[in-house]
């Protein structure tokens, strides 16, 4: 899932204080799981803004609502009239939601209430860890299911650097050395020899380095065109 965390309140206040009517819009999928931007958080943030506005003697009309996902038309369309009738949408979605909604409503500003951080997992309640870099060219079958692109600070492809110390990364003692983990996992899987071949330079064009990406499912596109619809 996409993991994000709420921006510091002072930063949010700084960006929104000049608006008269604000809609705090929660997103109930990924960022709700990481307790950053779901309906509950949207309500809390909206209350915090009200309190701050009162303290500062600002007159601001703040409301909150939430949708299941801010990145898909089908979850937004029925609420669009409501969403549009405000001076500012303070989106609590990830950056995808903010972009998607901005493109969709155009004339009303959509501001981010979160910092979108990474694609991560939830090993235990309240802990989120980055596990995938979305590079578009998966090699997890070669590395025991541990991604060196996302989990090695140098995205090394051929083994650990000289900075591994007691299984930790040179960047921080709080970061596991991905290559230490990979070697141990491959031993366990009896597949260490898979790491013996030199991996050649990668083609990064499948990642962001090839420019913004798009995946188009041709059969659905054809169907939409037949229906006279449009895929964004």
């Amino acid at each position: 899932m996409i993991v994000g965390s709420q921006k510091p309140f002072d930063e949010i206040w700084e960006m929104i204080q000049s608006f008269k009517k604000i809609l705090v819009l929660g997103c109930n999928t990924c960022v709700a799981v990481c307790h950053a931007g779901g309906s509950k958080e949207a309500e809390i943030l909206s209350e915090m803004i009200k309190v701050k506005a009162k303290q500062m003697s600002h007159s601001i009309d703040v409301n909150s609502m939430s949708v299941m996902r801010q990145c898909e038309n089908e979850y937004l369309d029925e609420f669009m009239d409501n969403i549009k009738s405000t001076d500012l949408v303070l989106s609590m979605a990830c950056g995808v939601g903010v972009n998607f909604l901005s493109d969709k409503i155009n004339a009303v500003p959509v501001y981010p209430a979160l910092n979108t951080s990474f694609y991560g997992g939830v090993p235990k309640e309240g802990l989120f860890i980055e596990l995938c870099a979305g590079c578009g060219n998966c090699i997890l079958h070669l590395t025991g299911g541990i991604c060196p692109i996302a989990r090695c600070s140098k995205s090394l492809m051929n083994g650990p650097c000289g900075g591994t110390d007691k299984g930790k990364c040179e960047v921080s003692k709080d970061i596991d050395c991905a290559w230490f983990l990979i070697v141990e996992r491959m031993k366990l899987l009896g597949a260490l020899e898979k790491l013996y071949d030199v991996q050649p330079p990668r083609d990064w064009s499948t990642s962001f380095h090839g420019g913004p990406r798009k995946i188009s499912l041709e059969h659905i596109k054809a169907y939409e065109e037949q229906q006279g619809g449009q895929i964004r």
């Binding site: 083994g159 650990p160 007691k166 050395c177 070697v183 790491l195 030199v198």
Partner: peptide
Amino acid sequence: SWTPGGEPLDFRPVNLKKKID
């Protein structure tokens, strides 16, 4: 470069081999 005393110790010779390969 090569870190003979680096971890995982038993993988370091492989590290060196890959650089030489």
